[in-house]
Design a protein around this nucleic acid. Structure first.
Length: 637
DNA sequence: GGCAGCTGTCATACA
DNA sequence: AATGTATGACAGCTG
């Protein structure tokens, strides 16, 4: 008979049952979370697990799922009116039918909300509870509960209670849980470690003493007892502890979140039962819960009211989360976020509206089509076929013969090219382009080519002609001037852009001096190099632009991840608070054989390696806590 | 006049 | 070897 393993759980189960007499699902589900969920909540997968387990954390799945939350935001607004908030499962005034079968707002599961006939009970043994359950619920195929292949209560909790007295459906979530591939022990230890690391030490003196005192008035007559003088070890079980009724003070002990209506169903009550056969319990190490909530250093400054006045042991975590947000903003500013981004991020934190992945503000998003411009094909120019212009933007897809000067290039053209792949309105992101607007007159003007040839002797007004000649001279490049001075019989444009074969052919048609040939080759070399320089600079600009966009993207990703981190920290904080409440709740209701509550200074709740929940001396708990901590550290190394 | 940005050119490496 | 390309460096020009 596995009393040693089962009774510790009964220690939890039984008070929970009483605690749930009016809101049966509330504590049961939350305690289930305490036992099975908390160890995992550091993992994002836990969120799904919890959700699947119908563990109501006072918040829906959307808390953990951005896309889900965003997508269903509108739907939720509508649905919440009908299901999550309004339905009778929240209202105690609801009629019996409404309360008999309600729908969980998160999962849609149906479950009974109340166990008739239990209201008048103030104290029940576990066996009595089970009998009540048996009498209350019609077991079998006609059960209202969702079918499940979970073990019955008797399987899950080895007691002498005999045949199954619990509808199978009550245990279904547990089964789901036990089938999870998690290393629960590891997860739980992670939880412990994080909680401890994050200063989740309760100023538990007040907390525990309050609990201790506040529950004293509800001392429950019980057949179970625990000799106070007896050193409590791992064999001390619930069976030996008496339980206080919690009817009166239960509500006050629960935070509003835990009282929230999303908790549901007495059916969840028995989900707590560990199914050792599935390894749920066995995966737990001997874990000291008390280390979280009842640190060894306790002062005795108890208040009269326990729950609400408890110092928040998670204050540190809260602070951490808030600091996180603050530091996030600092980070945003320090690490190159522009003020707009930073303020947007801040707004998102404030509004808690989830992610805003709108990238329209990004200056980089404008250049989506230009990224590959550097690899664009050669222009339509017949002169570029040779590859002299390997880097051409679209605007260069114009016939050089028609538009280009002798060097195949014109300043305004270049500027236009750059503008062509970048919206001018967005040039503020490229301050180095702000003042583009030069008119280097030593470059070739488009029409210079036609006037390149020496003009016939002037016959008109010389001053006007000289003016024009000066203007044209200014439009010509130095090589144009040189070519004209050397009487080169063909335009520089051809010199530069003709393919080698045609170029040689052209040279062969004329009788040219060595000086002329040398100049022609220099012109060709310089012309090609000029275009190469232009392409090179364009590439360089493109590279810079792409890098800027990459930086923007990375910053956006970073801010998104930071937002998610903040959200997860929030969720973690909530869950820690609930775990804390539950622990205090359970612990505060334990009674020794004299009906006296246990002192949190001396005792602590702990998971045993076999999955049971046990009450152990605090010194032992602390010792084990330190051992766990050491193990954690070793594992991290 | 100084400055920043653009452009052409040269030198050089490489294909 | 000749030719073309890429790129850093420099200088001139312009606003």
């Amino acid at each position: 008979m596995g009393w040693e393993t089962s009774t510790p759980l009964l220690l939890l189960l039984t008070p929970i049952w009483f605690l749930n007499r009016t809101e049966p699902g509330v504590l049961a589900l939350t305690l289930k979370f305490l036992m099975a969920g908390a160890e995992k909540f550091l993992d994002i997968d836990l969120i799904d697990i919890l959700w699947r387990q119908d563990i109501d954390l006072g918040a829906g799945r959307e808390i953990f799922d951005y896309s889900h939350r965003q997508k269903e935001n509108d739907v939720d607004k509508e649905a919440s009116n009908g299901q999550e908030r309004g339905d009778g499962w929240r209202s105690r005034e609801g009629n019996a039918v409404d309360r008999a079968l309600l729908v969980d707002g998160e999962t849609g599961e149906s479950f009974p909300t109340q166990v008739p006939g239990v209201e008048d009970q103030t104290a029940l043994s576990l066996e009595e509870c089970l009998r009540l359950l048996e009498a209350t619920f019609p077991f079998g195929e006609n059960s209202e509960f969702p079918a499940a292949d979970a073990p019955s209560l008797t399987e899950a909790v080895p007691t002498e209670s005999g045949p199954s007295v619990v509808p199978d459906g009550l245990l279904s979530p547990l089964l789901v849980e036990t089938e999870l591939p998690f290393d629960l022990e590891q997860q739980w230890q992670d939880l412990m470690s994080i909680m401890e690391r994050q200063g989740m030490e309760i100023n538990s003196t007040a907390a525990t003493e309050n609990l201790y005192n506040s529950t004293g008035r509800d001392i429950l007559a019980t057949n179970y007892s625990l000799a106070p003088s007896t050193p409590i070890n791992q064999n001390v079980s619930l069976h030996q502890a008496s339980l206080g009724s919690c009817a009166q003070d239960f509500p006050s002990l629960f935070s509003p979140e835990i009282e929230s209506p999303s908790l549901s169903g007495s059916a969840a009550l028995l989900q707590l039962v560990p199914d050792n056969s599935t390894g749920f319990g066995s995966t737990f190490g001997s874990t000291n819960l008390s280390g979280i909530f009842f640190p060894s250093q306790l002062n005795n400054t108890a208040n009269e009211t326990s729950g609400p006045d408890l110092p928040d042991p998670l204050g540190g975590l809260l602070d951490e989360a808030m600091l996180d947000e603050i530091s996030l903003m600092d980070l945003a500013i320090e690490e190159g976020f522009n003020p707009v981004q930073a303020s947007r991020l801040e707004e998102e934190f404030d509004s808690d509206s989830g992610l805003s992945l709108d990238s329209s503000h990004s200056p980089a998003s404008l250049s989506s089509s230009e990224a590959s411009s550097s690899s664009s094909a050669s222009t339509s120019s017949s002169f570029s076929e040779e590859g002299a212009v390997g880097y051409n933007s679209d605007s260069e897809n114009l016939d050089f013969e028609e538009t280009e000067g002798a060097v195949g290039y014109q300043p305004e053209y270049n500027k236009f090219c750059r503008m062509s792949y970048q919206n001018p309105s967005q040039l503020h992101y490229l301050p180095y382009l702000e003042h583009v607007g030069h008119n280097h007159t030593y470059n070739m003007a488009p029409r210079t080519l036609e006037t390149d040839e020496p003009e016939p002797a002037s016959t008109g007004k010389k001053s006007a002609k000289e003016k024009q000649a000066d203007f044209l001279d200014k439009q010509m490049s130095r090589d144009e001037h040189r070519a004209r001075a050397m009487k080169i019989p063909f335009p520089n444009e051809k010199i530069i852009n003709l393919p080698v074969e045609e170029f040689n052919e052209l040279l062969s048609k004329y009788q040219l001096s060595e000086a002329q040939l040398s100049l022609i080759r220099d012109i060709r070399r310089r012309g090609k190099n000029k275009m190469a320089a232009q392409n090179c600079r364009k590439r360089k600009l493109d590279t810079i632009i792409n890098l800027e966009r990459d930086v923007e993207d990375l910053q956006r990703d970073k801010s998104k991840l930071l937002r998610e981190k903040v959200e997860f920290l929030r969720s973690l904080r909530q869950m820690k608070q609930k775990v804390q409440s539950l622990y205090q709740e359970v612990f505060g209701r334990l009674r020794d054989e004299n009906g006296q509550p246990y002192s949190p200074n001396q005792y602590a709740l702990q998971y045993a390696s076999d999955g049971s929940m046990i009450l152990i001396p605090r010194s032992l708990a602390d010792q084990q806590g330190r051992r766990q901590e050491r193990k954690q550290k070793d594992r991290r190394k």
